[in-house]
Every structure is written in structure tokens, then in C-alpha cells.
Design a protein around this nucleic acid. Structure first.
Length: 265
DNA sequence: CAATCGTCCTGCGGGC
DNA sequence: TGCCCGCAGGACGATT
């Protein structure tokens, strides 16, 4: 499941390949959740906002993409059963949007429409922005005193980019139970959550994301390495790496959630 | 209004 | 071995 680190990784990789290049044509292999049939033009930029990807083209056009569960952008990647669309720079330079579960989308919109996109406008702050300070994080925490920490970390309207893997890692790193209400967090715990949030996302980008369950690969088709550094997400039915206590597996916000009852308070 | 629930979709793992 | 059932999850629309 691509989250901020995985999306950031593929965007950086594909950006270096296509920035200022021309897209000659596209091939739509699966029309589901794609709102255009043909496309050509110059690529001005490729950037990320939350887990969203924006391909900025000339003439005030953009392709807003979301990888959802199983989407991948792959430079010269395989054209296969799960291929949603292919962007061609020329016959040998192309990138694919593959998507096994077909939840992802690609939407051609004008600059005007992009600025009105609900998904983008409803996103919370970017956790890795320099101006996202501890005091800003504390203000966010104070806004939702009843929310559970792990559930709200996954809420894209509260904070952009964190999903079900990294929210659990952040809680474990900070030594905080995922079901704790925000209002119960002490300043020291908020500080630890803030530091863990920044550190984990930064480290995960450095390792080009997490390839769990043979799922995600980066924009060049290579596995990320951060899954080897996951401390709790990958410990289902196993013992805590730190204290050997059996890891607890519950559902929070309808999603699988693991934690160590001894290391997290 | 906010929180929760069902939905989309496919591949895979468990159970028999 | 093979089939069937259920589960996984990001975001959104419907519901409570």
C-alpha cells in the first residue's frame, strides 16, 4: 500500500525521467477510473501531495493520479494484465501505471479544476514540510481530543500521507498505544510522536519505501528496503522485537492494527 | 456535524 | 489437489 514514502520515491524517480520531456501519446488499457482517452504534451513537473500524484502538463493541464492499494508507476515497466495506462515519451521511453486491484485512478483536469479538487483541498498538512513544527502538530492534536491516535494518523484530512503501515510504526516508536485518545497524551508523548513521525517517514524515503507482501516496488521496479526495518506492522502473530511479549492484533478504524502491550502505554 | 459502515477489486491463504 | 470463503485496505458516499 503506497503511503507517503513510497509515493515520494516513485515520484522522484519518474520525475527525473520525464521532466521537460514530451509525452507523445498514451495507451489506455483499462478505462475504469481513467477519464481520458488520448493525451500528448510537454511535462512541466511531476509532484506529490499526500498520497496523490500530479503530472503537470503544458496548456494548463494536469493528470491527477492515486495509486490506492496496488497502483504502481514503473519506468519502462512491464505492460501486463494489470496495466491501467502507458505514457509514451517515445517507443522505448515510457512509464506504466499498473494496478492489480483497480482502485487507483488517473484524471485529466485543468489547472482550474485541479485547484477545486476535493481530494487535494481536503488534505491535512504535509508532515515533512519544514514549517510543520511541534507546535503545529500539538495544535492538530488539540483539535481532536477524542480521536484515537492511530485512526487519526490515517485520516488524510487531518494529516496527509500516513497510512496503515506507518501509523502503527509511529505509535510503536513513540511507545504509545494506538487506541489512546489524543486528549490523554502528555506533552512528552506528543513530542515523541512528532519526532517518530518525522524520523520514520524520512528513513522510509531513504530506503525507497516498504515492500511488504511482495507488493510495492519503486519506480524502477526495485523493491524498497524499509520493510526490513518495520518494527510492529510485520509482527502479526509474533513476539515484540524489543521485549518478546506477544504482539496484539486488533481492528481500529476498520483496519488491522498491531501493538506491543508492554512497550506501548 | 462527526464517527462508523459498506463499497470498490483482485489475489492469496486457510480450511476442508 | 482444488475449491470456496473471507480477508486485506484508501478514500468516498451513505448512514446513524
Amino acid at each position: 500500500m503506497p503511503e507517503l514514502p513510497e509515493v515520494e520515491t516513485v515520484v522522484r524517480q519518474i520525475r527525473t525521467k520525464i521532466k521537460d520531456k514530451k509525452i507523445l501519446r498514451v495507451e489506455i488499457k483499462d478505462k475504469k477510473r481513467v477519464n481520458f482517452m488520448r493525451l500528448s504534451g510537454k511535462v512541466l513537473d511531476l509532484y506529490r501531495r499526500g498520497k496523490g500524484i500530479i503530472l503537470k502538463l503544458d496548456k494548463g493541464r494536469n493528470v491527477l493520479m492515486h495509486l490506492k492499494m496496488s497502483g504502481r508507476l514503473l519506468w519502462r515497466g512491464p505492460i501486463e494484465k494489470s496495466t491501467k495506462l502507458v505514457f509514451y515519451n517515445n517507443n522505448k521511453d515510457y512509464f506504466v501505471f499498473n494496478d492489480v486491484r483497480r482502485f487507483g485512478y488517473a484524471k485529466l483536469v485543468s489547472d482550474q479544476e485541479l485547484s477545486q479538487e476535493k481530494f487535494l483541498n481536503n488534505l491535512g498538512p504535509e508532515p515533512l514540510n519544514k514549517n510543520f513544527t511541534l507546535s503545529e502538530f500539538t495544535a492538530l492534536i488539540n483539535r481532536k481530543p477524542k480521536a484515537k491516535i492511530k485512526v487519526i494518523l490515517n485520516d488524510q484530512t487531518w494529516l496527509a500521507g500516513v497510512g496503515n503501515i506507518y501509523s502503527q510504526e509511529i505509535c510503536y516508536c513513540a511507545g504509545v498505544l494506538p487506541q489512546r485518545a489524543l486528549g490523554s497524551l502528555q506533552p512528552e508523548e506528543i513530542k515523541r510522536l512528532y519526532q517518530c513521525l518525522k524520523r520514520i517517514l524520512t528513513a522510509a524515503i531513504k530506503h525507497r519505501g516498504s515492500s511488504v507482501d511482495e507488493g510495492y516496488v519503486d519506480g524502477l521496479g526495485v523493491k524498497g528496503h524499509y520493510d526490513k526495518l518495520l518494527k510492529i506492522y510485520s509482527r502479526k502473530k509474533k513476539l515484540c522485537l524489543r521485549c518478546k511479549t506477544p504482539v496484539i492484533d486488533v481492528k481500529l478504524g476498520g483496519r488491522g492494527t498491531r501493538y506491543c502491550p508492554k512497550c506501548q502505554k
